[in-house]
Design a protein around this nucleic acid. Structure first.
Lengths: 319, 319
DNA sequence: TTAAATAATGTTACCGGTAACATGCACGAT
DNA sequence: ATCGTGCATGTTACCGGTAACATTATTTAA
């Protein structure tokens, strides 16, 4: 690999001038810059990341910390990682995947943390390196997330427009911010339309929502739509309805939330709120690097507007 | 952060002695070793990875390259990554996720490559850094994989033991090594039992196997089991059978392959060949680091024996 | 006209490790 | 007693960058 020195010799200048061309180009004359650029191209110069890291006392490593149980979340986080990695690569940072188990092992320059719960507030606050949280939170940490409230509002509205008269919310049994926001979107729509709300909550497993639908089947009149807080719950609801002989989407509607993988393997595919996960991953990376490079303490949060992904679980036209 | 020098001063020795205690402990007397260890503990010494990387002309970065389209494979690879990351972390290496797009950007010390197809043989052969392929191949690259043949043999045998009289294989329409091996396991069992084989191949999408079952429903007599080369195909077959009114597992059986996620979201859950993916990921990491650290050219391949994950798509007892 | 300010480039030292060589000391053979 | 030998430890230089300071050339102000 060619080094600064190689470039310097070829261009007949000192290492320092080459370094300046890269880092402080305004302090070098245009003539020299051209010379140096030319030499860099000739020897195919790429900076040595380790040397930079050493002199800057940095590691060029970003830890991506997944605090949730990985197996409940796999497909989702893979996309997020791809986004983060894409952003970091561009600036020669590399991504390290950690969990609660091995969080402390080894050094890094910053963190992207996801799956944070209330109880994590304390130790995360103690961290000395910049961080970005993936997932809304009310503790003041910078975060990136989907606009959860807008998502459920939007899809509840769609269900209403398609003629379902009763909207029942099936939420996640966790007192976390994103869940509140999703419920809030549903509630807002119902209030605006003077409808009666009904919310049930379960752990995020399809068999629980499925069982719920089966157990209460006699209470659900045709023309009901289940607004679910996750595709997993929607999948269960869909199965429950089908096993009770309900017709989807004619008599019963189901909507999900996430739009990663599960909505597609369901049959019929779930009409869901699709999050722009790869893009959010890139935003996490960009935001974090910005904080690291420019020594910014707080840079505010970022909400991505979700889109509706059309499947076959709600009617295409008004009944 | 404490450095070698800090430790050295505290222990009243030179940097070099401390370095030797770490890297060549046999060249230092026991007394000094104790002294140095004590000092290291006192200042909480952790080696500076960047400095090591600089002097060894290494990067401490391993690229994990997914050559397949990520969206068809998400849940699978997330687990693999977790395994790889776990292995690398222990030795202070960090993992970089790359795809075809950004493969060349930035330096590294080695590669774990997955989703390799025949056409990739050439350029992978040109790589100058150590590599491990995830997924069997017949080009001589070291690999880690499940024993695919044993897997389909095992599960076909189970179907047979449970009394299904006809076994139909639904494979993937790709002329890759792992597919051949999976078919081979099936074929071997059928030959040993003097049964007639029947193989169909599709792209790895559930709706294709589903459509196939529906289109040919009249040809499938009760007591048939579909041995599928992936959980995705199995999911489709399961749906096809159900939509035609076939009873699972009473009259029809379905088996899958992979045991990651999809088999669990199916209903009933798919009886499948479960791969030990996290462990294989760790093996990839360990193998690669071994090659890097010890300058080994070729270290042979590694086959993991799969296990059967029992779901509800084949009978529990003989009919 | 000349001293002082300013801009462009070069020199040196350092980041935290490690290899290679240098030193000093104990011990056995002569 | 003398010398070589081997072992334990220390010194030096270097990996590839960058900050801080030094030097030189060019302007500007008095």
């Amino acid at each position: 690999m060619a080094t600064l020195n190689d470039v310097a010799k070829l261009a007949n200048v000192s290492k320092m001038t080459v370094s300046r061309v890269i880092n402080h180009p305004d302090k070098v004359t245009d003539d020299l810059k051209q010379l140096v650029y030319q030499a860099m191209r000739e020897v195919d110069y790429h900076p040595n990341v380790a040397a930079k890291a050493l002199v800057n006392n940095s590691t060029r490593i970003i830890k991506f910390c997944v605090l949730e149980d990985i197996d409940t979340t796999e497909p989702y986080y893979m996309n997020l990682m791809i986004g983060i990695a894409r952003s970091l690569d561009a600036q020669q940072y590399s991504l390290q995947l950690v969990t609660r188990r091995n969080f402390d092992i080894g050094n890094c320059d910053g963190y992207v943390i996801t799956g944070m719960r209330k109880k994590d507030f304390d130790w995360i606050g103690e961290l000395k390196k910049p961080l970005v949280i993936f997932g809304e939170n009310r503790f003041g940490f910078d975060y990136v997330d989907t606009n959860n409230k807008a998502g459920t509002f939007m899809i509840s509205n769609l269900a209403l427009k398609r003629g379902y008269e009763r909207l029942i919310f099936i939420g996640m049994d966790s007192r976390e911010s994103f869940e509140y926001s999703r419920e809030a979107g549903y509630l807002q729509l119902l209030q605006e339309n003077q409808m009666v709300s009904e919310i049930h909550r379960f752990d995020n497993h399809s068999h629980l929502s499925q069982q719920f639908v089966i157990d209460n089947w006699d209470k659900f009149e045709p023309n009901t739509c289940f607004i679910c807080a996750s595709d997993r719950l929607a999948l269960g609801a869909e199965r429950g309805i089908e096993s009770c002989g309900g017709l989807i989407p004619k008599d019963y509607g189901v909507t999900g939330f996430d739009g990663v993988f599960l909505n597609q393997v369901a049959f019929p595919q779930i009409t869901t709120v699709k999050q722009a996960i790869v893009e959010m991953g890139m935003a996490c990376g960009d935001k974090l690097l910005d904080k690291i490079v420019n020594h910014i303490q707080t840079s505010g949060s970022l909400m991505f507007e979700p889109k509706i992904s059309v499947g076959g679980t709600i009617r295409v036209n008004v009944k």
